[in-house]
Design a binder for these strands. Structure first.
Lengths: 342, 342
DNA sequence: GTGAAAGCGCTAACAA
DNA sequence: TTGTTAGCGCTTTCAC
């Protein structure tokens, strides 16, 4: 890795400036010189140092990404889309997988700063004051993808979680269900915690259902948690006939729990998920889910940050994307259900 | 981001050298000076430029990672482990998600070179001659994780795929199965294609079974492919009583196919997977699988590359890890199975 | 203990 | 068109 621009220049018998010019595709280089330079580059196996280049250009083409959990189907799909779009724009990704580890997040935010990334994508909304002020002090674009922290200064690419949860619940109501359970997220999260919960509650009341608190549980979006909460619901005196889980992972956990107790989805209990992750098509019965346009969100996240970096865009609030109910096989109308022994 | 070491020096009333010294935790700085410097750093919100630092130190603390598919449960789990270990060693990850896209891989390899990453991790084995020679010309450690390309110059962290496939098949034989189907990978892949296939075949012959070619199919490791191949097997005149799929994803596809045809796993057909991805616990029935120590492999991959970078280690061949059969609910002994209508 | 100065590999005025 | 030169922000001899 020892060959540098000077070596190329020497070998081609030109100045470093000329080499730099052909490297950067400038015109004003005569064809024969250009050829000699290219030849020298090939001979030497030269590859310009992005480090040196970044230093002088003050441009790193780096985006930092903070993912809560790489192994989650939802996040890995967004990340995949983010990577794809970034690559198309000649940007590279520095990824950090924080696993509920605030210290690690803080450490990485510092790394991002030191690495002079040009933009940061964050995919969780548990932002504490320290992190908040750190981010605000950063003079680079930060964008939240699929989540929205409470602080209004931040910009998010997101769906209308309230409305989506409302619609999911309304769908269950429309199928005739009265006892609709709720497997929720973390109420400290505005987007995926509070908004989805409120959507659920309002859908119930707007349709003349009363909110049954025994049927409401909160967890952490993961399969395991959905399993656990579902088992609590099943142990109740009068279980729900349908359940709305605020993530597909939790929905899967719920389905597994139902299955393991010898019951059937959707014959005994209907389950609707949230996210539209790949899981929905992979499980049996296939999971009906309120879908986020995951791929589009990743794409738009990067495209927006590109504009922010270029300075060609002044955000006037969040970017709201459309949610979409995708009906598969995990929900029955109430009169098709066998009903549980009470 | 305008504040630099000079500004800190000025504010603290010292030289840049002194600032650099406290930044790097050197001794030989009097406490009062150190304090003044730290104060200035805090006041200014200074953060040293990793770019400039890398340039002079010739050290980037960057590892490039090439993943075939971020959304796969197996790869995202390895990646997660790689990220964790790298972070522990103060290394950052530049990730590239190639999706069967050789051009993209080539482009990224160039990016890695230009970014002066200190090591590269590759997780697929479809290395063409161009890529091969590019890698060989690179004067930095390259390590393959979970795969082994044909070229003996490369070093891999890997299990004994032949033996693992042999053992998986032997397990099915031990359960009394005669007609054991094979849902294989890409025969151009040495590790996951050829070795697993040979393991399957040899296990059969060693145990006095003959190889039934109608029961053998090859695909691409994905769920969809497993589904497709299983459906071909089911359409045969005399379907298998058990199937060995060379990835958990394919095994899931096979299970889904069986399910969708109104048959049951393991009552009608036993299914064994390969990898030990999270999926195994998430599906019903839970999938019996020949597991790779995924987390350990990711960890060891990074630890090895760290040693390679430090120059404290001369590899004498691949690093072979232990595979392990984990029995769950997807395989029955033949006499417990109902048997298919032939 | 501390500082001045050289230089990491490149780009970008500015000259020629 | 091409080349000379001054930095980009930092670390690191080397001198004091």
């Amino acid at each position: 890795m020892a060959v540098k621009i000077k070596d190329v220049a020497k070998r081609a018998g030109v100045s470093v400036t000329t080499v730099s010019r052909v490297l950067n595709g400038e015109k004003y280089v005569k064809d024969d010189l250009k050829e000699r330079v290219n030849q020298a580059i090939a001979d030497l196996g030269y590859s310009p140092s992005q480090i040196a280049r970044s230093l002088v250009r003050k441009k790193t083409n780096l985006i930092g990404v903070i993912v809560p959990d790489l192994t989650s189907s939802f996040y890995s799909t967004i990340l995949s889309s983010i990577e794809e779009t970034a690559s198309l724009n000649d940007y590279n990704l520095l990824v950090c997988n924080i696993i509920e580890d605030i210290d690690k997040e803080y450490k990485y935010l510092n790394v991002f700063k030191e690495m002079r990334v040009e933009g940061i994508v964050i995919m969780h909304e548990k932002i504490n004051p320290e992190i908040r002020s750190f981010i605000n002090a950063l003079q680079i674009p930060v964008i939240f993808s699929s989540v929205k922290p409470a602080d209004q200064n931040f910009i998010s690419v997101i769906i209308d979680d309230y409305k989506a949860a409302y619609d999911a619940t309304a769908y269950l109501i429309q199928l005739g269900h009265e006892r609709i359970g709720f497997i929720g997220g973390d109420m400290r999260d505005v987007t995926s915690g509070q908004n989805r919960y409120t959507g659920y509650r309002n859908a119930l009341s707007d349709h003349g259902r009363k909110v049954i608190y025994e049927l409401i549980r909160f967890g952490d979006y993961k399969v395991q948690s959905g399993y656990q909460l579902m088992s609590e619901l099943l142990e109740g005196f009068n279980p729900p006939t349908a359940v709305f889980a605020v993530s597909d992972d939790m929905a899967l956990g719920a389905m597994n729990c139902i299955h393991d107790r010898g019951l059937k989805v959707p014959d005994d209990i209907s389950v609707i998920g949230f996210d539209g992750s790949q899981l929905t098509e992979l499980v049996r019965p296939r999971l009906t889910s309120m879908e986020q346009p995951i791929h589009e969100m990743g794409k738009l996240t990067v495209e927006t940050i590109m504009k922010l970096i270029a300075g060609t865009y002044r955000p006037d609030g969040d970017i709201i994307m459309e949610h979409r109910l995708v009906i598969r096989d995990s929900c029955n109308a109430i009169d098709e259900q066998i009903g549980l022994p009470t």
